[in-house]
Design a binder for these strands. Structure first.
Lengths: 73, 73
DNA sequence: TCTATTTGTAGTATGTATGCTATATTTTGA
DNA sequence: TCAAAATATAGCATACATACTACAAATAGA
């Protein structure tokens, strides 16, 4: 498969001013995992994706997409 | 992890009167994969989950949840 | 500027999602 | 009832998600 899923974790994390370590702890994953996700080295499991969406209180589609997110500026 | 994700694929599939083979073909996965998902033997990758939600035209959370879906009848 | 915190990179190990084949069982429709 | 279609079970192979350790580099705060 190796199908890429684009994400906005870094954006949301910056917005909320949360460090990777804090986020990782809140999600119960290793802090390096957040780095890998933000850098797009792999996409999260569905379970982790649901947990992340719940943490940020947004629908999954707001954070994850099979298509690239539009650039901001 | 082995974290379980509950899903309503079978329900939606029945509702739309689509066979596993048809769904699998539309999604581009092996038809046995749908069987494994419906039986809860594993959960889909995030990419596949997003594709399934798109296919059924509902948000991911309508089909997938970290918590058990309430029984219907 | 110095230090602490954060982030990046690398490498190993494990579990699981998925593909695929084959066969058995169940369901459906003519 | 019989045949075709759908579903279940099983087993093997591969790729990838994640944990974890260690260290380097960058950033931020005092």
């Amino acid at each position: 498969m190796a199908e890429v899923v684009h994400n906005r974790i870094a954006m949301l994390r910056a917005e909320r001013k949360v460090s990777r370590r804090e986020l990782a702890e809140a999600l119960g994953v290793h802090y390096q995992t957040i780095g890998y996700l933000e850098r797009g080295e792999f996409s999260p499991s569905l379970h982790l994706a649901l947990t992340i969406a719940e943490y940020f209180e947004v629908p999954v589609e707001v954070i994850f997409s099979t298509r690239e997110f539009p650039r901001i500026s």
